[in-house]
Design a protein around this nucleic acid. Sequence first.
RNA 1: GCAGGGGUUCCAGAGCUUGGUCAAAUGGGCAGGGCUUAGAACCCUGUGGCUUAGGCCUCCGCAGGUUCAAAUCCUGCCCCCUGCACCA
Length: 925
Amino acid sequence: MGEMDYQLIESKWQKKWREKKAYESNPDKREKFYLTAAFPYPNSPQHIGHARTYTTTDVYARFKRMQGKNVLLPMAFHVTGTPILAMAKRIAEKDEELLKIFETIYGIPRGKAAELTDPKELVTYFSKEIEQGMQEMGFSIDWRRKFYTFDPRFNKFIEWQFRKLKRLGFITKGSHPVPWCPRDNNAVGSHDTKGDVDPELGEYVLIKFKYKDGFLVAATFRPETIYGVTNVWFNPKANYVKVKFNGEKFVVSAEAAEKLKMRHSDLTVEEKNVKIASGEECENPMGGKKVPLYPASFVDSKNGSGIVMSVPAHAPYDYLALRDLGKAQGIIQVLKIEGFGEFPAKEVVEKMQVKDQNDPKAEEATKEVYRKEAHGGTMVVGKYKGEPVLEAKEKIKGDMIAEKKALIMNEIINGPVFCRCGALCGVKTVEDQWFIDYGNEEWKEKVRGHFAKMSIIPKKAIAEYEYTINWLKEKACARASGLGTKFPFDEKKMIESLSDSTIYMAYYTIAHKLAELKPEELDEKFFDYVLLGEGKGNAKMDALRKEFLYWYPLDSRHSGADLIHNHLTFFIFNHVAIFPHELWPRQIVTNGFVLMDGGKMSKSLGNILSLRSAVKKFGADVVRFSVVSGAELGADSDFNQTLAEGIDARIKIINDLIEQSVKNKDKAEWGKSDADKWLASRWGKRVAHAEELFEQLQLREVAQEIFYNTINDIRWYQKRIGNGKQNLRKLLEEWVLLVSPFMPHLAEELWEKLEGTKKGMVVEQKLPKASAKYDENAERAEQLVISLLEDTENILKMIKRTEPPKKISIYCASDWKRKVYEIVYAEKRFDTSMKKAMALPEVKPYAKMVAKAVEQYVKNVAGLSSKLMSQKEEVKVLEGAAEFLGKEFSCEFSVMKEEDAAKMGEAHKKKAEFSQPNKPSIFIE
RNA sequence: GCAGGGGUUCCAGAGCUUGGUCAAAUGGGCAGGGCUUAGAACCCUGUGGCUUAGGCCUCCGCAGGUUCAAAUCCUGCCCCCUGCACCA
């Protein structure tokens, strides 16, 4: 049998598709189908994980083509933002870790990698690499439309989009705290930090306790507990300083002063080494009570302000530290929670037997108390007495800030976080920050309205979108640095990367024709006309508008499920804002990730499989099939060698069958035997079902049906029909077409073997219509044979006979039993079934046996089938299979009616009485 | 904390919407057999327990409930994963 050289086959057909311009799509008379997948970010080559979304999209595109649609699948590269800059910088710094990953995982020689210190160079290199990989995967992409998001023409398009948003009132301005690197003078995201840590911001409330000529500021997450303050803590080992900003003087730790400077640029240090003495007093701004200052070791000068207010009723650390000092009296209750008395902190500490403030269990106790109090607590003191803690907290915070009793301090709570440049990151409040106001209620309402009409696949994701739509608020849309498009209303800023990729699908429709125009020609009027039909346009613009209107709206958007909570929802928002409703997107499809050998792929584990090396090793079609057929769309699918080998083996089985069928010159028609009818029916059902499954992107299910299950059916068929009689021609033809969306290269190759060139290539074929119909009788008949075979095997196994059987006699149940069976099927109960059965004249003569039969059927009432064969039909079917069954057991095999058993002797007769409809009795000698 | 997803037989993973045909698909692993000089591949059989005639018992995170009947429906509980942004 022929060997399959995947690489040869792949390049052969890729070349033919190219020559044919099979995937260059232009408007024509056909109905269009326009789909896109989230474009890649080329700061590294792609791994098999990336292949999931693109393969899903491509399978869908190929399926739609086979439905006769004019399909457009374009691709471009997203280069906006800072990760590419960060990557180039790391290379310039000869980051060993990075170069090693490039070398070992992606096979990029060190020399080559080291050259990629210029961001544009880096982009060019990796985008070529990615494009090459996509070509090798056989994705049916119209590459003429490729662009980069830093292309001047695309910049003009994005500027247009932002001007539109501004005019609609969706661009706002304000201030915003961000994680910040003081050395780079830029916001930091996870890819800018050492170890790729994502800096998390937390918000402390700094409460001003009057102290000497200024304030001690205590940092807290729980401002509502201000009523329960008994004292204020400082750490005797910490270094405190007096600083001045906003015209006021504050005592804080030296570390806190550093952090505060990032927000308050007017901050000056008035006095270093401020000594705080135990027992000194300060004044609670809420009520003006004087409270003492005490030392405590649990206070960390790096957290917050380095000063902490003490609320021993509700904070285990505070209670412990006071107990350590022997001053745990005069505790003040602030709130109550079910299941606790006045002082939850004290109770928990005592219950958990926490020794002192340095006991690790103190942390646990704190979590326990905080969780309960935040969730179910109710205030028992103060202005908001009786209100839930959660609400009172916000109100008290707001009040105190308004009355200048407190201020806000943002901090990285999972710190210390270091920038790649080595500097410690802090928090900066960016003034003049620009936002897209996704919180706009009117806008949201329009989005909700359209979302309800969209097709969301898988359906499970709907709730997540709805949650996101409701939750979205102002989204910062400009940054100090990065590649991409300049922010049109502040040329010193760049548009942030999630904000420039929300309507680019519109750009693809005309991207390949814009080269003829100069960037400056693509002004506001240009896009107003081409994309919105507003204003006046020339002939060229008219042509572009037509093209745009042919493809838009987008029929299907594809991406990983992780983008639901930002990109995909932004995508809906922006379309709704900018375009008329008839051009709003129709469908979104999201998929899960790819696991490697059951685990998550990660750089640190080094278990990343690069896409191109996977293709080399396993073949494009095997990789394609693996990543989309391994799990349901929304679930993560696993990739591993065994899976790939299993697919490979089955491809070879089909290839052999095809070669054999061609050699035998099989006629393109189904055989007439029972086995043929059975196979035709089973296959016909699958073909008929496939279109719906493809439509819903139930690719795992399609794969299961037409790949694995069909091959299992073929195995039974071959066994059943015997050597030399098989004809699988029709099935194979249809099979090749049905798997072609998954395995386009192999499909072409197999199709050519089967059909030559007279019908053209697979890419020109339509989805097959089932050549055989579901045949209930054929399937029921064959099922009878299958279960008889199984039952016989069971019995043989059970009786542990050493010598093979000499003769097997089969007795098919009498027709009166079938009557009884039907009655039980309808009645489901013993008593009524009995009554009805005995009323029938044809049953009556068997009165003695009826009760037994009814009992049998009732017991198995769930397993009864709605339609029965007659005794005559059953005998006929089994006689047809007698030769086969005899061969299986290498013995004589006879099929008779139950009534004939008596002739064979008493033993036969007794056994035959056990026969049931669908379950003939088996007598083995 | 909020939101979403999930817990099934050695593993992965279907089934749950529409309760019965579910000891529970399919794939993998493992065991035995066949083929082979041997192995790989391939094919067959087995893989909860008991059982010398196709049977019985137990079982689908835990605990209850509804029903003639529950992996599937209802209630409560436990555990795991993901996201919560200015970052692609």
